[in-house]
């Protein structure tokens, strides 16, 4: 459960990370308030993932946090690449 929650939070975090750099990732541009929101979500979700995983203990938590980051990164990368390919 911890791993799934951390994975989900990292997916949200990294999605916001991609959304904050629309030109680089070929995503639609967003307005300034929307960008501020994404910036905050990116920060909060990564910290929330850390807090959740650390409940399993410092060492196991850190390992889970780093590894779920890797898996979430691939999920987001594939989704963003798919979005870019689907765009006309």
């Amino acid at each position: 459960m911890t791993i799934l929650a951390s994975l989900l939070l990292w997916v949200v975090c990294l999605s916001c990370h991609a959304g904050l750099q629309p030109v680089r990732y070929g995503l639609p541009l967003s307005s300034a308030p929307y960008r501020t929101g994404m910036w905050a979500v990116r920060l909060i979700t990564s910290l929330m993932a850390l807090v959740i995983t650390l409940r399993d203990g410092t060492i196991i938590g850190m390992v889970e946090w780093c590894m779920t980051f890797s898996v979430a990164g691939v999920i987001v990368a594939v989704c963003v690449a798919g979005l870019r390919r689907d765009r006309p």
């Binding site: 990294l14 990370h17 991609a18 750099q21 680089r24 990732y25 990164g73 987001v76 990368a77 594939v78 963003v80 690449a81 870019r84 390919r85």
Partner: peptide, 9 residues
């Protein structure tokens, strides 16, 4: 910045 960048096309 490129942490989740993947350009398949």
């Amino acid at each position: 910045p490129d942490v989740v960048l993947l350009r398949l096309s």
